[in-house]
Design a protein around this nucleic acid. Structure first.
Lengths: 331, 331
DNA sequence: CCCCGAACCGAGAGCGCTCTCTTTCAGATC
DNA sequence: GATCTGAAAGAGAGCGCTCTCGGTTCGGGG
């Protein structure tokens, strides 16, 4: 009843273990005739190699970890991003016959678990989804010699390969769109400044404004809907005459939209509004939200490519992909 | 530079491999003093057990597979369902220190891959998300002796543990709600009849109607938005006087909503509409969709429990969880 | 004082595989 | 016909761990 071993197959085919191993691993130095005998024995016994034994000697596991490092509350704030990344990574790895081990590292305990797991040699590489610049995990993983690719630029201190979308460029495009439609007083609701995305999108906003001669009007949120509403109220108080807002993500934009309506401003007639991310809900707001879309699929693909390319063969250690402005009705 | 082994730790602590193993695995038959020496050696060397070697002898891997068996196009038709299941399963497994290996089996090739992977002893158990009744995968996995729990009742032929929501009851609740709000001609847009969900929800509809003395009006869709619109048009043609529709899922309900509007019917004034699933988009329709929500979190939790309970200790091999009617504005 | 059992530690086998090294043997060469 | 060559198959070590089994120590009872 237990699973057949190499030994059993060898016995049945009347050859040695080594020969069966050669056949199973597709080496060419086996006489076709013997090869056939072995293959027949394999299928008769239903032999499947034992992965533990194999990776004990090869030092490979043919699986990679997809680590999501986020505080529990925010993990799936964007389900679609998550599922698209997973789907893309999965199909991308399929061709190289590798598996995905999914790990959610929300708590410090979770982090420790991830580190232990990775360092026990369970995986050949790590894809790290961490939006938080101050996250200690990238550095920790990097230290233990496993190939790691990060989704989003990691904190400056660490030098590890990453894929990111063009936050600066995307924010710039949003602001330029507002400028080109004749808006004059363009405010921003920035994201938390301890996150790379928050920083870069603010930079993009500032750069674009500097090139015109508008002054910047900034409020800071924390990427949540409520903080977007708060920030919007404050902006209206500071500058009641503003006629456009760029929010650093869609959640905050949705909060801002609500606050604007409550303050009696029409969108886009009185105030134009642009978000960032193009989450699913952005298409359902009233009016539908103009926003900046990250090329999620391309990013995921790039991550896998980067991870599977041996460090010495790499021409670059990071890839920045362009974001796309999706124009709907809010601006 | 390479990772330290048990041997190295043993040498440093001045004990045998066996003793270190005992300490690492938390056995009590070790003198506290020696235990401390060993633990010190472990942390000094940064020792982490090699998982391949361990599972080669223990025959355990401490990871379980989450297999999503769906045609590629439909896999993530509901991102939220997917991510909630993943999150719940993940945190549920955390306490027993197991990992999730994620496998998407969309193509026949994918199925074959999954089977090979599972049968190579890579995982201790399988959680199977398969909505398609005719799927051959449940049976195949069941055959190879790995514990499997299915999300959704599998095809009748297979006898494997599963967790499901109360499709019949949920559909019944939807219909009774329509009856109680005074609707008289209640139609349904049924799902595909080769899927368990499609069958059961139709049964629930029929049962509820039979208990009143209304006659049933049925059109069949395939769970897509377009098929919902088609079915709705046909229903209106068959019975222009209908005043309520129960759609077997939200996607079809959204399609139906569009068709109704195009036909000049007001929802809910002229025609009341109820969906099923409570996908994210259901909250954003105009009017927001009344629907039946599956208790996703509870289902995921139940699956894990079922999987981790040894077959002989089980009191039941399936768990049916109640669905909840979410009343919004469409009915 | 000796013996016996309990408690603890070490020796060693073995999990199933890969891979190097050696052996074998057919065919080529002189 | 003896020697050489190279390709193909086998022998055997060893990956890092667990676990059984046997040995050692120590305290307490006869």
């Amino acid at each position: 009843m237990k699973r057949p071993t190499l030994e059993a197959v060898a016995a049945r085919a009347g050859v040695s273990r080594a020969t069966v191993s050669r056949v199973v691993n597709g080496q060419s130095t086996v006489t076709p005739e013997i090869r056939d005998t072995v293959l027949r024995a394999v299928s008769e016994l239903g032999y499947v190699p034992n992965s533990a034994a194999r990776s004990l000697v090869t030092q490979r596991t043919d699986s990679i970890a997809l680590v999501i490092s986020e505080p529990a509350t925010r993990v799936f704030s964007d389900d679609r991003l998550f599922s698209m990344v997973v789907r893309t990574v999965s199909s991308e790895l399929e061709s190289s016959d590798k598996q995905i081990v999914l790990m959610l590292a929300s708590s410090p305990r979770g982090h420790e678990r991830v580190e232990r797991y990775i360092s026990s040699g369970h995986v050949d590489g790590v894809l790290l989804l961490s939006m938080h610049g101050a996250d200690p995990l990238p550095a920790a993983l990097n230290r233990m010699g496993v190939p790691v690719v990060s989704y989003g630029r990691p904190a400056v201190a660490v030098a590890l390969p990453y894929v990111d979308n063009d936050n600066v460029g995307g924010a710039g495009a949003a602001v330029r769109h507002l400028l080109s439609t004749g808006r004059r007083r363009i405010a921003t609701i920035a994201g938390p400044q301890d996150m790379i995305g928050g920083q870069d999108r603010l930079t993009g906003y500032r750069d674009a404004l500097r090139n015109s001669d508008r002054r910047s009007i900034v409020a800071v949120g924390d990427f949540t809907r409520a903080s977007g509403a708060d920030a919007m109220r404050q902006l209206l108080e500071d500058d009641p005459a503003l006629d456009a807002v760029f929010a650093a993500n869609d959640e905050m934009a949705i909060g801002a939209l609500r606050a604007l309506r409550r303050a009696g401003r029409r969108v886009p007639d009185d105030v134009a509004l642009v978000g960032f991310d193009d989450i699913e809900a952005a298409a359902y707001t009233d009016p539908p939200l103009t926003t900046v879309r990250q090329p999620i699929t391309e990013q995921a693909t790039a991550m896998v490519r980067l991870l599977l390319t041996p460090a010495k063969d790499r021409t670059t250690d990071h890839i920045i992909l362009p974001s796309e402005l999706v124009i709907r009705e809010s601006a």
